[in-house]
Computed example of a mutant assay.
Amino acid sequence: MTFFRCFCVLLILCCCNSKPNTEAEAIHVSVLRGPSAIAFAHWMKEAPVIDGKPVSVRIIDSPGLMQAALIKGEADIAVLPMISAANLYNKGIRYHLAGCPIWGTLYLAGRSGKEISGGNKPVLHIFGAGTTPDILTRHYLRQHKLDYTLNYSFTTAREIMQGLLAGKVDHAVLGEPFLSIALQNDSTLQILADLNRPDSASLGFAQTAILYAPALKKNQKTIDSLLNLSCRFAVEQPEQAIRILEKENIFASGMLTPESIERCKIDYKTASEAQENILRFLQLIGQYEPKALGGKMPDEKFYK
């Protein structure tokens, strides 16, 4: 009887010890809900392995929660707005900048026959005062010498989209996927301007950043290769990417289209490849809203 009990205890201990703690051993990737998640559909379908550990993607619902995760060191890799990455760096949160995966999702939309042009002063609805959409909108309008009145009464892109569809708004700045939803549901709406290009030859503005923890520095080449693969998957196989994102409940059915993904300008560039573009973008942000960067430009180490 004693032998039997000892055998049972030994068996239980062996079973417990043989079960790996995959959650603790995973590489935790935090991605803001929205266009950034599109670039990671491939990782959701087939979790890659970095340094012998599987990648686990978690969707974060707000920039505030993302910032908290980074401050607490809960994310090994994080995807967030470039201005937030620079701000956190200036606050002493020392993650490494891997690169930029998305080069712009912002568009000016309005009703046919009511295009913005010089000589009038339309009301333009926008959300997020002091954030990237607001800054790029003001920059575009200043560049093209357009007179305007910015209206911030709607606090989210969804509210602005609903205002457009209800006929309460004629001109608005929207990003994907809300732009595509609006265009699909109202044939009188059209894209009036692309706010994502500093000039016609440019890839776009380096609006999104991918950061990784210092412990992963030795895996930089592997990370870059996997990020490039994931971004190419979204661009080259958009229908599959959409199915994955819908299955994972990142986007509701019908929210995304291949055109939505195309308008997100997904193209992974490493920090060294994109450094000049990132610098120009952050200088532009600093010109309009220096507080968005924490009051100063990040130093050279930000790009290393």
Rank of each mutant, 00 (worst) to 15 (best):
L10D: 04
I12L: 15
P20S: 08
E23W: 07
A24G: 01
E25A: 15
V29W: 05
S30R: 13
R33P: 00
P35H: 12
E46D: 15
E46A: 14
P48I: 06
K53D: 02
P54S: 13
S62M: 05
P63G: 08
G64C: 02
L65G: 03
M66T: 10
A68P: 00
A69E: 11
K72P: 00
G73E: 08
M82H: 07
M82V: 03
A86K: 07
A86I: 09
N87R: 15
A98R: 11
G99A: 02
C100F: 04
Y107K: 12
G110L: 06
R111K: 14
E115F: 04
S117E: 09
G119P: 02
I126E: 11
I126C: 15
I135N: 01
I135L: 13
L136D: 00
T137F: 07
R142F: 08
R142D: 14
Q143C: 06
Q143A: 11
K145M: 03
T149S: 13
Y152V: 02
S153Q: 14
A157E: 15
V173Q: 14
G175K: 01
G175E: 10
S180W: 00
A182D: 05
I191F: 04
D194A: 01
P198Q: 02
P198M: 07
A201Q: 13
G204L: 02
Q207E: 14
I210L: 12
Y212W: 06
Y212V: 03
Y212R: 07
A215V: 11
N219R: 13
N228R: 15
S230K: 08
P238A: 06
E246P: 09
E246V: 10
K247I: 00
E248P: 01
N249K: 15
I250S: 03
I250P: 01
A252S: 14
L256Y: 06
E262L: 11
R263Y: 12
D267L: 13
E276G: 12
N277S: 15
I278K: 09
P290A: 04
K291T: 11
G294Y: 07
G294F: 08
K301W: 00
F302H: 04
Y303V: 00
K304T: 06
